[in-house]
C-alpha cells in the first residue's frame, strides 16, 4: 500500500512534459502502481488539453494533410492486435534481477550503483542504493534536491515508513538516517540534482560523488 505520493506541482511538471528523463522515470514507475496519482495526472493532462485548445489563430496547410496521408498509405493498416503485457520500464532499463546488478559496496550495510550513463545528455545524477535488510545508513543531509522512489523493500526514517513504490523528495533542510526494514533489502532509485552533503563520519563513504 503506497502512502507517499509526488506533490501536485511535480505531477503538473510531469504532465506538461517538463521533467528531466530520470525524474519522469520516477514518476512513471510510481504511477504504474498508484491509481490515486494516475487519476491526478489524468486530470492534469486534461488541463494540458484545455490549455492547448486556447491557441491564437494559426493555420496548417492542406498540403501537410496530404503528406500525412501519403505516410499512412505507405504503412500497413493499424490492427487492433492483442497486446502482450507491456514490460515495465524498470525491467527494460535494469533487467529483472535487481539483486544481481553490479553493486558497489560502500559500507557494511550500503551498496550503490550509479546509472547516470543510462540517461545521456542531462545533468541529474541517477543512482540506485541498496540498504541491506535491517541495515542502517549514516545520517546525511542533501545539498540539492533528491527525488527517491522505493523499488524494493522498505525503509524508515524520522518522517515515517517508506514502502515499495513510495515517492519522496528530500531537500537541503532534510537530514535523515534511513533504516531498512527487516525481511528484504531496500533498494531505492534516486535522482540527485546536486551532490549529497556529509554530516556523519561515514557520510564520506556513502557519498558517491567523493571518491
Amino acid at each position: 500500500m503506497t502512502r507517499h505520493h509526488p506533490d501536485s506541482l511535480m505531477l503538473m511538471e510531469y504532465s506538461a512534459g517538463n521533467l528531466s528523463e530520470p525524474h519522469a522515470l520516477c514518476i512513471r514507475l510510481h504511477l504504474d502502481k498508484c491509481a490515486h496519482c494516475r487519476s491526478r495526472v489524468d486530470a492534469l493532462d486534461s488541463l494540458g488539453a484545455v490549455m492547448m485548445e486556447q491557441q491564437s489563430q494559426v493555420s496548417v496547410s492542406e498540403s501537410t494533410f496530404d503528406s500525412i496521408l501519403a505516410r499512412i498509405d505507405s504503412e500497413p493498416a493499424p490492427q487492433p492486435t492483442p497486446r502482450t503485457p507491456p514490460r515495465s520500464p524498470l525491467s527494460k532499463l535494469l533487467g529483472d534481477d535487481l539483486d544481481g546488478l553490479p553493486w558497489k559496496r560502500q559500507l557494511r550495510d550500503v551498496s550503490v550503483l550509479d546509472i547516470t550513463d543510462r540517461f545521456p545528455g542531462q545533468k541529474d545524477q541517477v543512482i540506485l542504493q541498496k540498504l541491506c535488510a535491517g541495515g542502517k545508513a549514516p545520517a546525511h543531509t542533501h545539498r540539492g534536491e533528491e527525488t527517491t522512489l522505493v523499488l524494493q523493500g522498505a525503509f524508515s526514517d524520522n518522517r515515517g515508513v517508506f514502502n515499495q513504490w513510495d515517492f519522496v523528495v528530500l531537500g537541503q533542510e532534510d537530514e535523515h538516517k534511513p533504516v531498512a526494514l527487516e525481511g528484504d533489502d531496500c533498494i531505492t532509485l534516486s535522482v540527485l540534482s546536486a551532490p549529497l552533503k556529509l554530516t556523519g563520519t561515514f557520510g564520506r563513504l556513502l557519498n558517491p560523488f567523493i571518491r
Binding site: 528523463e21 497486446r83 507491456p86 520500464p89 543510462r118
Partner: peptide
C-alpha cells in the same frame, strides 16, 4: 544513446490495459 523510450517515461492514457 536513447536507452529509455519516451513512452516508457510519459504514458498515453489508456495504454495500460490493466487499468
Amino acid at each position: 544513446e536513447i536507452q529509455v523510450e519516451t513512452e516508457d517515461l510519459w504514458q498515453i492514457p489508456g495504454d495500460n490495459e490493466d487499468e
